[in-house]
């Protein structure tokens, strides 16, 4: 029995000489990564080119590694993050942050080439995360829908809103 099994193994190994090779010549040859592959995280902009992140803290709350830290700026109306930091040395690329984000600001992209010599270099600040475009969600602009007034969008000007009511009027 033992001899047969050994011979069979040798035979199978020999046959592999004639199989198509699976080795990818990385980095000369790049693998295909689907657009929804969960790699490096970016912060995108809305179609008007403004920062999309409204510093709602939901990504930070959902992150199982607690590796997102941000702070809302002092501005009262249009919320934006004063700082936004991801410690990629902790991130497990689970994509929960992307799922939680109500504005599609935070997105995972098909890039995993983030190796560094020093762990400290894996701490990305907002300027490292922010990209110029809208990423995978081309159209969405949170502030066009939200009820808060923003510069250039007074009350009642958002999608599906009536003009502000006159509280002194008694008509329905």
């Amino acid at each position: 029995m033992f001899i047969i099994s050994a011979i069979r193994t040798l035979w199978l190994t020999f046959l592999h000489l004639f199989h198509k090779t699976e080795t990818v010549q990385y980095p000369e040859q790049k693998p295909y990564l689907a657009p929804r592959y969960r790699g490096r995280i970016v912060l995108t902009r809305d179609p008007d080119g403004e920062e999309r992140c409204v510093s709602c803290y939901l990504c930070a709350a959902v992150c199982p590694c607690d590796c997102i830290s941000l702070q809302k700026s002092a501005a009262p109306d249009q919320w934006t993050p004063e700082h936004f930091r991801i410690n990629f040395s902790r991130c497990i690329f689970c994509g929960f942050c992307e799922e939680a984000c109500p504005t599609s600001a935070i997105q995972l992209i098909p890039d995993f080439e983030m190796s560094e010599i020093s762990r400290q270099s894996l701490v990305y600040e907002k300027e490292h995360l922010l990209i110029a475009g809208t990423g995978k969600v081309p159209d969405y602009n949170f502030y066009r829908i939200a009820g808060v007034a923003t510069p250039g969008k007074p009350k009642g000007a958002a999608l599906n809103e009536s003009p502000p009511v006159d509280p002194r009027g008694l008509l329905p």
Binding site: A60, A61, D66, S69, L70
Partner: peptide, 12 residues
């Protein structure tokens, strides 16, 4: 939240 990132700017 953010316990592994809050001080990471100064030390990881």
């Amino acid at each position: 939240s953010g316990r592994t990132a809050v001080n990471a700017a100064s030390h990881v």
